[in-house]
């Protein structure tokens, strides 16, 4: 099992998830974050804190988002770990509002 970051994160990158991850398994791209499945301990802390509900536990991934499992695996292997909160993307507030959060 693992947490999976999906498309709501793209262009937001709020990083609230990073602040509650007990095992620092988030990796940072420019526009969004990804979870390293090997490090994830399924504690689910990140799922609840994302302001745009971008994170799913893999067992709960709706079929239209299932491709994000592989994307998280691939991208987290290439990108550096992020352990501290950072500024969201400039497009974050607008996207959050558009998504209805």
């Amino acid at each position: 099992m693992t947490a999976v970051v999906t498309d709501n994160c793209e262009g937001c990158r709020f990083t609230e998830c990073v602040t509650v991850c007990p095992v620092a398994c988030f990796h940072a791209g420019e526009e969004m974050l990804y979870v390293d499945a090997e490090g994830c301990i399924d504690c689910c802390a990140c799922v609840a804190v994302c302001p745009v509900q971008a994170i799913y536990m893999d067992g709960d991934l709706p079929s239209e988002l299932s491709h994000w499992l592989d994307i998280n695996r691939e991208r987290s292997a290439e990108l550096p770990v992020i352990t501290e909160q950072s500024e969201p993307r400039p497009t974050a507030a607008a996207k959050r509002s558009r998504l209805g959060f």
Binding site: T19, V20, C21, P22, C43, C44, A45, C46
Partner: peptide, 12 residues
């Protein structure tokens, strides 16, 4: 309240 990771932000 909260889970293991909730403590991280709290302690920070």
């Amino acid at each position: 309240s909260g889970v293991i990771g909730t403590n991280r932000a709290d302690s920070v």
